[in-house]
Design a protein around this nucleic acid. Structure first.
Lengths: 144, 144
DNA sequence: ATGACTGCAAATGTTTTGCAGGTTT
DNA sequence: AAACCTGCAAAACATTTGCAGTCAT
C-alpha cells in the first residue's frame, strides 16, 4: 500500500506522527471511490472507532491534501468533497443534476485552449476548475 | 432604466412589491461592475440608508437572481458573489491568485468542445462553471 | 520533559429563518 | 383584513480553533 507510506513519509518530514486515527481515516478515504465529504468520511470512520472526533477528520483531510493524496473538490453545494489524488490524473467533472451521478472527464483540447486563452490575457495558469452540469442519459430516459 | 422595469415586472408577476429597500439594493448592484458579495453590497447600500438590514440584502439578491438580473458566482473562497446578468452574455472567469483581479472570458471553441464532451457521455448540458486560476502579467512583473 | 495528537466544546463566518411590528392594497 | 416587507436577533450550516488531557519519543 503505497499511499500509506507516502503519508508516513510526509508526516515525518514535518515532524508529525502517524497515529491510529490518521491511519483509520486514510484507510476509509482510500476505501471509497466516491467524492466524500468530511461528514461522510466521519460516518465511515466512526463505524471502526466510535470515539473519533470530527475535528480529527477535518484535520486529517487537510493533511492528506497537503501530502498530495487527496484533492479538494467543490461542486458548489456548500460542502467540500475530497477525491483521490495519488495516481489520479487531473480531470474535470460532469454532474447529473437529477441523480447527482458524476463522471470524471478530461479533454486535452479543452486544456490546451485554456492555456491559450490564459496566455492571450497574460496569465500563467496555476490551475482550473471546470464543472459541467447536465442531465445524464438514464435520467432523460426515465423521465422524458 | 430597463433593469428596474424588469424587476418590477418580475415582482408583480409573483404578487410581490417593489419597495424602497429593493430599489436601493438594485441601484447599488447595478452601480458597481465588480463581483459583489452580499456583505460588500450591504456596505454600499448602508451608505444610502443606514437602517437597512443585511437579511434584506440577502433576500433581494436571491430575488434578483430569480428575476434574471443577477447571477451567482462562486470563486470557491467561501463567499458568494453576484454579477450582472441582464445584457451580459455567458462567460467564464480567470482569476489572479495574487491580486485577486479577475477577467471575464469566453472561448467559443471551448464551449463547443464542452458540448461535444457531454454528448460523448450521453449528457445534455444545462450549464457549466469554469474558473481559470493563475498569475496575471502585472503580478509576475512586480515579483518575478 | 517536550512536543505532538485527540476529543470536546466553543468559536467562526456566511447565509437563512422566525418573529413582531410596519406597510401596502 | 390579508398579504407582503422589514430589521433584528437567533438559528443553521460547514469548518476551524482553543484547550486540557493523553501519548509518543
Amino acid at each position: 500500500m503505497k499511499e500509506k507510506d507516502i503519508f508516513i513519509r510526509f508526516l515525518s518530514d514535518r515532524g508529525l506522527r502517524m497515529t491510529n486515527q490518521r491511519g483509520l481515516i486514510l484507510d476509509a478515504f482510500l476505501g471509497t471511490e466516491r467524492h466524500v465529504s468530511p461528514e461522510e468520511l466521519y460516518g465511515l470512520v466512526r463505524r471502526k472507532d466510535g470515539t473519533i472526533g470530527q475535528a480529527t477528520v477535518y484535520r486529517t483531510l487537510k493533511l492528506l491534501t497537503e501530502a498530495g493524496l487527496a484533492r479538494e473538490v467543490d461542486f458548489g453545494d456548500g460542502v467540500l468533497r475530497y477525491e483521490h489524488s495519488y495516481g489520479h490524473e487531473h480531470h474535470d467533472h460532469m454532474i447529473c443534476e437529477r441523480c447527482h451521478r458524476h463522471i470524471e472527464v478530461v479533454d486535452e483540447r479543452i486544456e490546451e485552449l485554456q492555456e491559450r486563452l490564459a496566455k492571450k490575457y497574460g496569465f500563467v495558469l496555476t490551475g482550473h476548475r471546470m464543472y459541467l452540469y447536465g442531465i445524464c442519459s438514464e435520467c432523460r430516459r426515465r423521465k422524458a
